[in-house]
Nucleic acid binder design. Structure first.
Lengths: 253, 253
DNA sequence: GCAAGAGCTTGATACGGGTCAATGTCGGAG
DNA sequence: CTCCGACATTGACCCGTATCAAGCTCTTGC
């Protein structure tokens, strides 16, 4: 195993064929011929370390980005200087859709852990899209899914802190499941603070709710590892708004 | 003025040329040739009365809809049966983007007042899109703008009731301005309850805040008519989070 | 013109969760 | 190993806004 092994490694690092996120990626739904068209367009994948930015709000975005491995948070800074997390993105997810209208990114994207990112330059993307019906469809569907995701996020407004966190954990479990991981035990790559900035609650509240859930036997935490012990209970909590109220049967005040 | 006058009226009712929403419509940015392609695709405009629905969540949506006149609210019903308004749409706005991914509407759309709606059947739309670069671009931009709009809505989460309402009024004024109306005096086609369901606050709170704003000389209300007396003050309130604090000058803690 | 109802305003009270503060815990640098 | 800094947990307190409860005011149908 001399030269050829090295070439193989290089190929593995960049080819869609060896990509761990293959099943979820925008390229996955393309027919082989169309995927081949895309191959020369896409740039070698790029590594971003925890805390580093993929792009910043205001950047001219010349590309869409697909996560190959790792996880990314996208966020904006509100007028009052607060960080507002718009979404957590996992392997296969595409980011940069919000820049398509104007060419300028409105959000920031930072890695939550060391991540590998594919770059799809817009220019080439448009060219391929001219020829590929499936790519056009995939782009449209990707954006439409983004609209659905954001619409779903809006529903959090009506929810209590308990419901938000339960819904978040279930959603995350679901995402892990669709990527072939366990839906019961997983690691959160984001901090409590990030979860708070995402769900619009104070870090302290995230912590308190997790503690309470643990006390109710709904889950077990160990640092960033979460083990869902009673997903049904969590689901019930999201839709009904409360458990059998084991802990606080006392009307305080 | 015999027959020809009647034909003219029919044409006015349906042709893009006479549409009051021409400046903002998706078709407006198309080159003449492309717009002509779209003409045979689009169906005669349709009238929806206050309270009537354009479509319901779960419907198979065979089209995008463009508002010709009037106003529409789109909303979802949350798990707990509450109405959650996703957006208010004015002439020129396109709705139905969230159905593009699956073909099924996820939201409901109801008229806030008698409205005239253009229907763009998807089948024909895709066909024209095959041939028109500008239409493809306009569709992408429309969706991207929708993503931006939703992202903006998410920022309301962090705000107080005062800030939300002030931002809402300024945004509405801006929308009216871009359609050639006054930015200072306008009628709200939606009820206080609808505003509440949109901004996630109780009807009573909407009312109270409006009353307070009036007391501060920021605006004047008369039924559904709003007159913005101090837009700068409102803007300041949104970004800074408070007026010169006439009422509650106490620094707490 | 009057009655009925829908929508709006105003007041009193309760409570969810934010903020401030203190302590605990883990991982990495030296 | 030990110290340090970042992150997490726990507690006390209080503010903003929901909720409940009247009363008010238009609009609409008859």
């Amino acid at each position: 195993m001399g030269m050829s092994a090295i070439v193989d490694l290089e190929q593995r690092k960049n080819s869609c064929l060896w990509c761990g996120a293959r099943q979820n990626c925008i390229a996955a739904s393309l027919e082989a011929a169309d995927a081949a068209l895309l191959e020369p367009v896409k740039r070698p994948s790029r590594v971003v370390r925890r805390g580093q930015h993929l792009f910043l709000a205001g950047d001219q975005l010349p590309a869409l980005y697909v996560i190959r491995s790792g996880s990314i948070k996208s966020y904006v800074i509100t007028e009052d200087g607060e960080e507002q997390i718009i979404g957590f993105h996992l392997p296969g997810d595409t980011i940069g859709f919000d820049a398509l209208a104007t060419g300028e990114a409105r959000s920031n994207a930072a890695a939550l852990e060391t991540s590998s990112i594919c770059t799809l330059p817009l220019e080439g993307l448009w060219q391929v899209a001219e020829r590929s019906v499936t790519l056009r469809r995939e782009l449209i569907r990707g954006m439409s899914r983004e609209v659905l995701r954001l619409t779903g996020m809006l529903q959090n407004e009506r929810r209590t802190a308990d419901q938000r966190l339960a819904a978040f954990l279930l959603d995350h479990a679901d995402n892990m499941g669709r990527r072939g991981y366990s839906t019961e035990v997983f690691n959160l790559s984001m901090s409590r603070r990030d979860i708070g900035k995402y769900l619009d609650m104070a870090t302290e509240t995230v912590s308190r709710v997790l503690t309470r859930f643990q006390g109710l036997g709904l889950l077990a935490t160990n640092r960033n590892e979460i083990r869902l012990l009673d997903p049904t209970g969590l689901k019930h909590l999201v839709t009904e708004g409360g458990i059998g109220d084991t802990s606080r049967a006392v009307t305080h005040h």
